[in-house]
Amino acid sequence: MARYFFDIEDGELRCDDTGSEYADLDEVRHAAMRILPDIARFESADGDRHTFSVVVRDADRRPVFVTTLALTGLWLVDRP
Rank of each mutant, 00 (worst) to 15 (best):
F65L: 10
P63T: 04
D7Y: 02
M1C: 04
G47P: 08
R62T: 06
T51Y: 00
E27D: 14
G11R: 10
Y22E: 04
D7H: 11
V77L: 09
E9I: 11
V66W: 00
I35W: 00
M33D: 13
L71E: 12
R49N: 07
E12M: 05
M1L: 09
V28A: 05
I35C: 14
T51R: 13
R79H: 01
V77E: 15
A45Q: 13
F42N: 14
V56L: 09
E21R: 11
F5H: 10
V28Y: 04
D48R: 06
R34S: 12
L36I: 06
L74T: 03
M1G: 15
R79L: 11
L69W: 06
V55C: 07
R49E: 12
A59Y: 02
D10A: 15
S44G: 09
D24H: 11
P80I: 00
V64D: 09
L13D: 02
P63H: 04
A31P: 02
E43A: 14
E21Y: 06
D7N: 15
H30W: 02
A31L: 00
D58E: 06
P37D: 07
A59S: 12
G11T: 07
H50E: 08
V55N: 06
R62Q: 14
A2T: 04
D48F: 02
C15R: 10
M1W: 03
L76P: 01
V56S: 11
D78V: 01
I35P: 03
R49V: 01
R61D: 13
E27A: 15
T72M: 08
T68D: 03
T72H: 12
D16A: 11
D17Q: 14
A23M: 10
Y22D: 00
T72S: 13
D48E: 11
V54D: 10
L13P: 00
F52D: 03
L25S: 05
V64M: 10
D10K: 15
R14Q: 11
D46K: 12
G19R: 04
A40S: 12
D48N: 13
S20H: 10
L74M: 12
F5V: 07
E12C: 00
R34E: 15
D10V: 02
R49A: 10
V64P: 06
T51M: 07
D10Y: 07
T68G: 02
D60Y: 02
D58S: 06
A31W: 00
G19T: 05
D46M: 08
D17H: 10
A40C: 06
P80M: 01
P37H: 09
L25G: 02
F6M: 08
V55I: 14
D10G: 10
L13N: 01
V54L: 10
W75V: 00
L13W: 03
R41I: 01
A70K: 11
D17C: 05
T67C: 14
T51F: 01
T68F: 00
D17T: 14
R41Y: 04
D24F: 02
W75R: 07
V55H: 04
L74Y: 04
D26T: 03
E21V: 05
T72V: 14
D7C: 08
E12T: 12
E27G: 12
E9W: 08
D10E: 14
D78Q: 13
L25F: 12
R61A: 08
R29L: 05
G11A: 09
D17F: 07
L71W: 03
I8M: 04
A40E: 14
R61G: 00
R79C: 00
R57S: 05
